[in-house]
Design a protein around this nucleic acid. Structure first.
Length: 752
DNA sequence: GAGTTTGAAACT
DNA sequence: CAGTTTCAAACTC
């Protein structure tokens, strides 16, 4: 990953943002047009071709006509969603797409990422077509996710209404219960001769006609196909079909027919999508090459695979620990070429389910940014013994630049378990090569073409990837790793302290290669070295009364499941996910930022991290670990309300005399690694010392801390992460320059 | 390891 | 918002 990934991520984010408004508009439009129907049914509406400009104009007029007599609806929608004019703009946007050729442009409905475009010729593209909903600004996660499921030769787009981590009671209830309230599937598949014109031309409002469009119940374990009822030019899916699959004849895929998916939504009443078949084709949703001919049974063809969905996600504004996955679908996108599993394929597994990938296929896993559930990928090679646990660090990277090695996937299908574990994974999992820790997670930086990665994961060979991969492993697996794997001397790592200052960490990260410099540090991964470096796994908690569901519990406060703790009556685990979610909600109600890092940055240009809330120490002088500031190895700030504070030295600025809150200056901790500017060393020697590897390392620590902080904050905004890192780099450079200047200014004095 | 101290979190 | 209680970690012996 690296540049390509960055571009890809940026483009994805951009695309999502661009589509957000359109999606919202479409929803508003559909709300107006099909309000009555979609309140009761999951329906699929077929519309005449809108591919031509004139047709679009017609539709535009129809929309206007339908909107005008319903001013109350319009007003409501304008309040909650978009201005009316946007609806027209949507049509224009659709028209633009129809008129354009090839991959999208920025002004189009969806702009393809660079990565996607690279594969657009041959590979269907995955775009999550997520239903947009109107949540308040406090929602934590995007509320809807569309997952694409591959079942054998079939692929289905499922539109889920995912959990909304929100203050909204209903949303929280959904979140807790794990309900999936909406699943809509479009699929071209085994279809009898489809008489499009017959359907379209039947416009008698109340006439019910059995169509040749089939709605398939795709509930697990069932595959009940029923002919959809055609009513008022709308195909009404059977009401009991919670998950429906529209079967469209292949002959229609290149027509101008419009598929309108109308599904009941809980938050805004109804949600809907309109996609023309031709548009879908052009977008890659429908790949004609994948339309299989009817089989020997005559009217049953194979499938038209809508390979693309479009996901619109709102940037999360809250962090939430380890969301539940019960009843949810996990999605992993296979990138890269090779085999029958083409790039862009989206694999899903229900809950902590299993993804089965045909052998020798995958080259890269992509975790959608909105998929908060997928935090670990447990790669279980059926063709090889052992498993590989691949944690996804709060989706800080959208793509796991980890290829599934061919050998792992050869011949027999590999099994991929998506484990909804935050940080404390199950012990005893055989792991990969060298690991380093990052607080609750550990990252592995794997040099490209490392032959030692044979049994685990290797870097994809696609040219857009860089020479490194990241694996993030749990601290507890380190001993196992050290026993199983040989250390690669060229592996890179850094040592730093996490945002909350409580965890020693040695992350190696390539989240933004061009931003985060690498520091070569030879590391032997064993506990002795870890301890010597001040690295240690997160401490287990000892909670006895809080059931680990209050912020007293560090595990819970850090958004982690308890694992190998000494706690009693622990509810901070998957077995008590419902209680846990309630507790999370409760904490968030008390303090919306409860799960955000306590240690944050000051304003741009500032040099230090600081405790966002500040401490309130009275007796410790802020010189014991009782003090959160001291524990985090940062000086107390103006945010603190401490009494008799002696923790006033600035991080990396000790001795510079500019950060003494109370004029008291005591060395707080001799073991602290925060001092990169020793005031006792002056002159050229000081300058040289300043330019030491330690300083570089410290700088990297700060940069990595930014990424981690961003990650822990639950944000999926890569631009924000980049901004943070750049700002931090600027601060570090400013500090360095400041130190050098001051050192140079002391040279005449020291030498004289 | 038991008891004490401490301060954040939770509660009123 | 302030005062009090609860809690678990840090600390001391």
């Amino acid at each position: 990953m690296t540049e390509s990934m960055n571009l890809d991520s940026a483009d994805i984010v951009s695309s999502l943002e661009e589509f957000d408004s359109l999606d919202t508009s479409l929803e508003a439009e559909l709300n107006m047009l099909s309000e009555e129907q979609h309140l009761k049914h999951t329906s699929i509406e077929l519309m005449p071709s809108v591919l031509s400009k004139s047709s679009i104009e017609v539709i535009k007029e129809e929309i206007v006509e339908k909107m005008e007599p319903e001013e109350h609806i319009e007003e409501q929608l304008m309040e909650e969603t978009i201005p009316y004019d946007n609806t027209v703009n949507i049509i224009d946007s659709v028209m633009d797409i129809v008129e354009s050729e090839g991959p999208y442009h920025e002004q189009d409905l969806v702009r393809l990422s660079e990565d996607d475009q690279n594969h657009s010729d041959n590979d269907p593209l995955e775009i999550d077509h997520e239903e947009s909903t109107m949540h308040n600004d406090h929602e934590i996660f995007s509320d809807r996710v569309i997952d694409e499921v591959i079942v054998g030769d079939e692929q289905v787009i499922e539109a889920h209404e995912s959990r909304a981590y929100d203050d909204n009671e209903a949303d929280i209830s959904d979140m807790i219960s794990g309900n999936v309230t909406e699943e809509t599937v479009i699929e071209g598949s085994e279809v009898m001769e489809f008489e499009k014109q017959e359907i379209i031309e039947k416009k008698e409002p109340e006439k019910v006609v059995t169509s040749n469009v089939f709605v398939v119940n795709t509930h697990p374990g069932t595959l009940q196909t029923a002919q959809a009822i055609l009513s008022n030019n709308t195909l009404i899916a059977p009401k009991e079909n919670k998950v429906t699959r529209l079967i469209v004849p292949t002959s229609n895929s290149d027509t101008g027919q419009t598929i309108r998916i109308v599904s009941p939504g809980k938050l805004m009443g109804a949600t809907a999508k309109t996609i023309t078949l031709a548009q879908a084709k052009q977008m890659g949703l429908i790949n004609l090459n994948q339309i299989y001919p009817p089989n020997s049974k005559g009217n049953v063809g194979k499938l038209v695979v809508p390979k693309k969905t479009v996901t619109v996600m709102k940037s999360p504004t809250k962090i939430l620990p380890a969301p539940p996955t019960l009843g949810k679908t996990q999605k992993v996108v296979i990138r890269g070429a090779g085999g029958s599993l083409k790039a862009g394929t989206i694999l899903t597994s229900p809950g902590a389910g299993v993804l089965r990938i045909p052998g020798a296929q995958a080259t890269q896993l992509h975790i959608p940014t909105g998929n908060k559930q997928v935090q670990y990928l447990k790669l279980v090679g059926s063709s090889k013994p052992g498993t590989t646990l691949v944690p996804v660090s709060a989706l800080s990277t959208k793509t796991i630049p980890v290829a599934l090695q061919t050998s792992l996937l050869n011949s027999a299908p590999a099994t991929f378990k998506v484990l909804p574990i935050t940080t404390q994974a199950t012990a005893g999992q055989p792991q990969t090569s060298q690991t380093v820790m990052s607080g609750t997670t550990q990252r592995v930086l794997i040099p490209a073409n490392t032959s030692q990665m044979n049994n685990t994961l290797v870097q994809p060979t696609t040219p857009r990837t860089s020479q490194h991969s990241i694996l993030m492993l749990q601290p507890h697996v380190l001993p196992q790793v050290s026993k199983q794997e040989k250390i690669t001397p060229t592996q890179s790592s850094t040592v730093r302290t996490t945002a909350n200052g409580k965890r020693a960490a040695v992350p190696t990260t390539k989240v933004k290669e061009e931003i985060v410099p690498k520091v070569e540090v030879k590391t032997e991964i064993d506990e002795a070295v870890m301890e010597a470096n001040g690295i240690r796994p997160r401490k287990p908690c000892n909670c006895t009364k809080s059931m680990c569901l209050k912020l007293y519990c560090d595990c819970f406060a850090n958004g982690e499941f308890c694992h190998q703790c000494n706690c009693t009556t622990c509810f901070n685990n998957l077995s008590h996910e419902e209680e846990r979610q309630r507790a999370i909600k409760s904490c968030l109600e008390r303090n919306p930022t409860a799960f955000r890092p306590k240690i944050g940055k000051t304003y741009v240009g500032s040099e230090e991290r600081r405790h966002n809330k500040g401490c309130n120490c009275r007796r410790s002088g802020c010189l014991k670990n009782y003090c959160e500031c001291y524990e985090a190895k940062i000086p107390c700030s103006k945010n603190c309300k401490c009494v008799g504070c002696k923790n006033t030295e600035g991080f990396l600025r000790r001795g510079l005399g500019d950060d003494d809150k109370f004029g008291i200056r005591e060395k707080a901790d001799s073991t602290s690694a925060r001092n990169s500017c020793d005031p006792h060393i002056t002159g050229h020697r000081q300058v040289l010392n300043l330019m030491s590897p330690q300083l570089v390392e410290a700088t990297c620590q700060c940069l990595v801390a930014q990424v981690e902080e961003w990650s822990r904050g639950g944000s999926t905004d890569l631009d924000l992460a980049q901004t943070w890192v750049i700002e931090e780099l600027g601060r570090c450079l400013a500090q360095l320059i400041d130190c050098i200047n001051k050192s140079l200014a002391q040279i005449p004095q020291s030498t004289s």
